[in-house]
Amino acid sequence: MAEVLVYVDHVDGAVRKPTLELLTLARRVGEPVAVHLGPGADSAAAVLAEHGAVKVLTADASEFADYLVVPKVDALEAAYQAVSPAAVLVPSSAEGKEIAARLAVRIGSGIITDAVDLESGDEGPVATQSVFAAAFTTKSRVSKGTPVITVKPNSAAPEAAPAAGTVEQLSVSFGEKSTGTKVVSRTPRESTGRPELTEAAIVVSGGRGVNGAENFHVIEELADSLGAAVGASRAAVDAGWYPHSNQVGQTGKSVSPQLYIASGISGAIQHRAGMQTSKTIVAINKDAEAPIFDLVDYGVVGDLFEVVPQLTEEVKSRKG
């Protein structure tokens, strides 16, 4: 069976969940070969093998952290040359898309971004995308070169499928352009202890209706009772009530959880673009005409300051 390159997204060797989903999808198209750049390959390899990586190609160099994007493209290109894969899959993070796009240019291939599903087809992998703020579902394929496809988080459930996961050193020679953009400093985001927004099974979001940073604890308490991530609309972020890293929507994060709870959010098209593919959608809004109610499985017309705390209490008492 042909090999498929899977770009590993990790933090110091802790593999992020979308990569495990990618391995699951990759197995539909070929044998996954993981590409792990930077530190922690040994601890990552065990997890990657557990999820189906037949091989783990790894390279570590200071360039990956010190310069933006291009060194990683050089390395992925080296892996491509070494393996001649049937496809290259990359997680759809902002950086992942940039890496994938530059690789596609170099190897003369087409690129599909933000796939939400992947199947094998007669003419190569077929990617499902959700477009125009999820109003349409498309099926596309790459018609020139080796398909390069980026896949959104939560596109598949990670499955265990133990494979060899043999670690091999990848030799990379960095091009002269690789040091063009220097990363002068890096400040890691502080962890909130809550699940990662894009990976969470449940997301609880607040909007303009929350009416102040000091009220967001109402949203956070519901989130914590459900073990959920916290999201926010752009109106809440622009008002300075919640960090931009929690924004859901076209210019924030795109989420696709099992359950999405929107409180005090009207449901503008740009917000819907980032959450409409959620499996179950619930909204609390005092305006019965709010467009968010067109999307919901269950909606409560009411004041969020009444409904949400009651819901939180009820969830806590049911969970015991």
Partner: peptide, 16 residues
Amino acid sequence: AGTIVKDEGEGGKQLA
């Protein structure tokens, strides 16, 4: 089409 209820004091419990 989903279920939409008006909160009459029990909205949070219904949602739960």
